[in-house]
Each structure stands twice: as C-alpha cells, then as structure tokens.
Amino acid sequence: MNAAADGSDVSLLELCDAEVASTSNPGTSSLAGVNWAVQRNDFWVVGGLLGSGKSDLLSTLVGVLPLNSGRLLLDGAEITGRGGPRADAGAQFRTGLVHDGGLLFAHLSVAENVALPLQYHHNVSFADAADRAGAWLEAVGMGGMAELPSTRISRNWAQRASLARACILQPEILLLDNPLTGLDPVHARWWMDFLGQLWTGHPLMAYRRATLIATCDDFSPWWGEGRRFAMLSNGRFRTVVEPISRQELSDCLAANHR
C-alpha cells in the first residue's frame, strides 16, 4: 500500500509555493510563496487584517478560486482548475465553507438554504432533505427559524445557518471565514463551543473529527490547546511556530503588519 492510499504520511491539504489570486484585483495575487500543510484533525486559525487575503485563501482551498501559480494538493493528489477539492470527491464533498456574514440565498427560506446542497448533490426533493436540514438547524439552535425567509434573520443567525449549510454534506474539512466577526458575545461563545464539538466529533457528523481552518482578525478568542496559528501579512503566509502567550499572539498581528 502506498503512502497516498494509506493516507498516513500525506497531508490532507497542502499548498506548495502557491500564489493565491486576488478576487478584488483580478490578475494580481493577494498572497505569494505559500507553503502550508494541513494534517487531518488540525485546527488552524489564520489571522490577518482587513484585505490581507483571508477570504481569497479560503476560496482557493474550497476550489472556487484557481491558484495563479503553485500547487494545491488534497490527500497528495493535485487539484487543478475550478472545481477544486470537490472535483474528485464524488457526491460527498470533502470541504465546506462558511462565508463571512453567512451569504444565504435570498430567494430561499432558512431551511431551504440548509437543504440545498443535499438536494442538489443527492438529487432529492426538499421534503426528503427537510429532516436532515431540520436536525442541523436544531443543532445550531435555529429549530424555530426554519420557515423564515433568509433575509429576515440577523447576521448572528445567518452565520449559524451558513454553518449548518456547510455541514449538511458532512465535509471532512470545514473552512470558516471570519466566523466571529460582528457577533455578540453570546453568539461568539456558542461558536467556540460548537466548533470544539465539530473538532472532537459531532453526532451529526457521525462522530468523525473535522479538520477546521478558521480565519480571524483577532487571535485572542481563538487561543486554545491543540490549535495552530498562522498569519497573513504583507502578502505572505507565516505560521506561528513558537509557543507564545495569548497576549503575544494577539499583538503579533498588528506588529507584523507594516
């Protein structure tokens, strides 16, 4: 059995000398020379100030934004072009993305938003997907909001619905774009607890541990055991290798930005 098939020696997700394209300035790169290996069950927190390329990095990892140069590997296999990590993943996607602000579809209700990936990729009607969507909505504390139009809920709840939508296909890797930004403290605490459950194995994910990659503009709420940190500054990706204190970690974002 080779290493790739075994999966033991191979990184789950790897960027090799990658130039991440910029969505705001087409034709340019927001990050260059990115070398990054994500192992199974890692919990990465990538910090960066506004415009540092956090969303572009996640869009690249989910396969929506092709690299300008370099390689993106999933389980050792190179992913090329649009389609990204999902291209060879069959019906069950291996990555899910929670967008900054939720980005729910305005023409659908909350439950329809959550059910849509399941409906589309498993070709089932809404009635058939409603149970699973309902279970996820219950899990994120939105059981009573299923029928509401998605435009009628606040950013706090839209973000949670987006998490349910990203999780309904039970992805192996969950990408979260600034999930705590703009949330009140109660919601922020809920997020940290729930992400902890996903990382250690949630019942709705068949108790399988998810690999998490979250972006943020402030490291302090993310401080925790077993988590790994990286930062984006001046178009570069840097991992935080030294074990440093919560305060040092929080300060390093601003300190590294010139």
Binding site: S59, V62, H99, L103, L116, Y120
Partner: peptide
C-alpha cells in the same frame, strides 16, 4: 451580494 460565489462554494 456574492450569492454566486456562495453557490459555487457548495458545488452548484
């Protein structure tokens, strides 16, 4: 409102 990108991200 970037719903198109959200749609692509869920593989639609």
């Amino acid at each position: 409102s970037h719903e198109i990108e959200a749609m692509e991200a869920i593989g639609i």
